[in-house]
Amino acid sequence: MNAPAPDLIDLELTVNGTARQVRAEARTSLCDLLRDALHLTGTHAGCEHGVCGACTVLLDGQPVRACITLAAACEGRAVTTVEGLSGPLVDRLRAAFHAEHALQCGYCTPGMLVSAVDLLERKPEAGEDEIRRDMSGNLCRCTGYVGIVRAIRSCTRG
């Protein structure tokens, strides 16, 4: 099979509030662009097929899987990674993750935080069942979910 010559694309996008210009191969995922080209290694590549949630970032404020979002599709858009999460809610969530021992190895944590911020903004009064259902797209393989759910719950208005 003849491999086509690499298709290089020039992209302009905003990452954590800063305008960035990057050249990348068309096949580059947003996850690899963030990690390899922009050196923002907070976004973790886990399963790389959309199942584990470790690479979840915000794209124009909405959570997406960076591993199955093409970088080329993000031209002109705003990306927020775990490094760029800020504000009173995020401060409370970070403190709660610490207090509730919601991480151990930390591999899933960037995706957990991004998904939890989105959940808390959409459903500030979510109960435990809703938190568990909405966080089911983020897998943790060591600490377990009890501390994670407890940490998120402590940031609800319930």
Binding site: P4, A26, R27, D32, A45, L70
Partner: peptide
């Protein structure tokens, strides 16, 4: 876990 190369066209 990376795609094989392709050309990309945003319609």
């Amino acid at each position: 876990m990376k795609p094989a190369p392709f050309r990309y066209h945003r319609a």
